[in-house]
Amino acid sequence: EKTLKIVADSEEEAEALAKELAEKYNLEVTIERNPEEEGKYVITIKIKP
């Protein structure tokens, strides 16, 4: 299993990107607040072998 993390500037941007990735590529995608940067969100994508 591989994990890729993407940082987005807004929750709306994160949700839109996560939804597109999940639907288009059938990936497991989660969104959470970035504890290191206020106002940023981390999109985590898990790629199963």
Rank of each mutant, 00 (worst) to 15 (best):
E15H: 12
I43T: 00
I6L: 07
K24R: 10
A16T: 08
L27Y: 13
A18F: 05
A8N: 01
P49E: 07
I31Q: 01
A8V: 15
I45E: 01
A18D: 00
E20S: 11
S10L: 02
V29M: 03
E20F: 15
T44C: 08
K24N: 06
I45D: 00
V42M: 07
V29W: 15
N26K: 14
L17F: 10
K48D: 07
I47H: 04
E23D: 06
L21W: 08
Y41K: 01
V42F: 13
V29T: 05
V29G: 02
E38Y: 14
E32Q: 08
I45T: 02
P35Y: 11
T30V: 10
D9C: 10
K24Q: 05
R33G: 04
Y41M: 03
E20H: 13
I31K: 01
L17R: 04
L4V: 08
T44L: 11
E15P: 00
G39M: 04
A16V: 07
L27T: 11
N34C: 14
R33K: 13
E36L: 11
K46Y: 15
E28W: 08
G39E: 04
D9E: 10
D9T: 06
A22W: 14
E15I: 14
E11T: 05
E23R: 15
K46F: 15
E11P: 07
I43K: 00
K19A: 08
A22N: 06
N26I: 02
E11V: 12
Y25S: 02
Y25P: 02
K19L: 07
A18L: 07
L4C: 14
S10M: 01
N34K: 06
K40Q: 09
K40L: 04
A16I: 08
A8R: 08
A14E: 00
D9R: 06
E15N: 14
Y25T: 02
N26M: 06
E23Y: 15
A8I: 11
E12P: 04
L4Y: 15
V7G: 08
K24W: 05
K46C: 04
T44W: 12
L27D: 02
G39N: 06
P49M: 10
K24E: 02
K19I: 05
L27R: 05
L17N: 01
E15G: 05
E38K: 12
E28G: 03
T3F: 12
E23N: 12
K48C: 10
K24L: 11
Y41P: 01
I6M: 06
A18M: 07
I45P: 01
S10F: 02
T30Y: 13
A18C: 05
S10P: 00
Y25M: 02
E37K: 09
Y25F: 05
E20P: 02
K19S: 07
T30D: 04
E28N: 10
V42R: 03
D9K: 06
N26Y: 05
T3R: 05
E12A: 09
T3D: 05
I47V: 09
P35M: 11
L21K: 00
A22H: 09
A8L: 13
A16G: 05
L17T: 03
I6K: 02
E23C: 15
V42Y: 09
A22E: 04
V7Y: 15
I43N: 00
I31G: 00
I6Q: 02
E28I: 10
L4W: 15
K46W: 13
E1D: 10
Y41T: 02
L4S: 03
A22Q: 13
L21F: 11
E20N: 11
A18T: 03
V42E: 03
E23M: 14
L21T: 01
K19Y: 09
E1P: 14
L21P: 00
K40V: 07
P35L: 11
L17V: 06
I31N: 00
E32M: 14
E38Q: 12
K2E: 12
P49F: 15
N34Y: 13
N34Q: 07
K5L: 10
L21I: 10
L17Y: 09
E38N: 13
E11R: 14
V42W: 15
L17M: 11
E28L: 08
K2P: 06
L27K: 03
E12F: 07
A14M: 03
E11Y: 15
E11G: 04
N34P: 07
I31Y: 12
